[in-house]
């Protein structure tokens, strides 16, 4: 009997040690990286603060955002921590309640933009050829337009309501997202599994959505977060121009626009506090987006 037993020689190169646990730990590892990331901590904290304001605003806010039974333009301090506006409404309450609309509207804009953008990006990246060329030209043309002007015109034509604002902003995000997704698809479709799927007789829809899409969720999630930040900014901007959300809704952009001319008169608090709110939310969302991207790229 030789020392070499064929049954022993049969390969069993198993990568043992509980591979299912490996998978869980990989996910935990990403979460751990995220929790450790300073941008994620700061951004997350600010974001959570605003979400609490949005959800429990009615309880937290000291006054009703619409109540006008105070003296106008009370400076910060005293019973009105952040002062009151021209009509005597409590600025703090309006800022707190204002979080709600923006935190509903911004993610919806981002969802519309990322949803449509992903669809178009997948089509362009997967089919390439004339479809890619055609849509690509349209996207380029779209991106060449000054967004504020066109958004202004669109909203002026369609009439201003929260719905039209959200739709317009969402659609304006679409081409930008489409470009990002297209680039990701182009890199991904070079993989042999795409070729294997074609040889298996899969149709384009299956390959795009079931084979490629799950592998490009990283950039899409990042894009989604970035878009939320831009949406907050854009909605506020449109409100400021007067074509966005209409008064008397306690919207941050609207609040800034209503009294920014009065800063010179010394009534700075009515403008500065909602402006700070906008800035902090945009920065928070972008910090989280940065952190996500960083963790993704590891």
């Amino acid at each position: 009997m030789s020392a070499v037993d064929p049954t022993v020689l049969e390969p069993e190169p198993l990568k043992d040690a509980g591979a299912a646990a490996d998978r869980r730990s990989a996910r935990r590892e990403r979460l751990r990286l995220l929790v450790r990331n300073p941008s994620a901590i700061i951004g997350g904290a600010i974001l959570i603060f605003w979400i609490i304001c949005a959800v429990f605003g009615d309880v937290i806010a000291p006054y009703s955002p619409f109540a006008t039974d105070f003296d106008g333009h009370l400076p910060p301090g005293g019973t009105h921590i952040l002062g009151t506006d021209q009509l005597g409404r409590d600025v703090l309450s309006r800022v707190i309640i204002g979080a709600r609309d923006v935190l509903i509207a911004a993610p919806i804009c981002a969802t519309i933009g990322v949803g449509l953008g992903t669809l178009i990006g997948l089509l362009m990246g997967y089919y390439r050829g004339w479809l890619d060329d055609g849509l690509g030209r349209i996207i380029e043309a779209f991106l060449a337009l000054p967004v504020p002007l066109v958004a202004l015109l669109t909203l002026a034509a369609l009439g201003s309501s929260t719905t039209t604002v959200v739709l317009t902003v969402g659609i304006f995000f679409t081409p930008i997202v489409a470009r990002t997704v297209r680039a990701a698809v182009l890199a991904e479709r070079e993989n042999d599994y795409v070729q294997a799927a074609k040889l298996r007789g899969e149709n384009g829809l299956y390959i795009m959505f079931r084979e490629i899409l799950p592998n490009i969720t990283g950039p899409i999630v990042v894009e989604f977060t970035v878009r939320i930040g831009y949406a907050v900014f854009t909605i506020a901007f449109l409100s400021f121009l007067g074509v966005g959300i209409q008064p008397p809704t306690p919207d941050w952009g609207l609040m800034v626009s209503e009294e920014y001319a009065l800063i010179i008169g010394g009534y700075w608090w009515v403008t500065v506090f909602p402006a700070l709110a906008i800035a902090s939310l945009v920065i928070a969302v972008n910090l989280v987006a940065d952190a996500l991207q960083e963790v993704n790229e590891r």
């Binding site: 042999d192 599994y193 070729q195 074609k198 040889l199 007789g201 084979e211 592998n215």
Partner: peptide
């Protein structure tokens, strides 16, 4: 082209790629 071939013919000819990292969908 494989897309123009009947399912039977398509099934009959398959490939083992060089690099399994690229040939297997990593999300599945």
């Amino acid at each position: 082209l494989t897309t123009q071939r009947p399912a039977d013919a398509r099934r009959a000819i398959q490939i083992i790629f060089q690099n399994p990292d690229s040939a297997l969908n990593r999300s599945k």
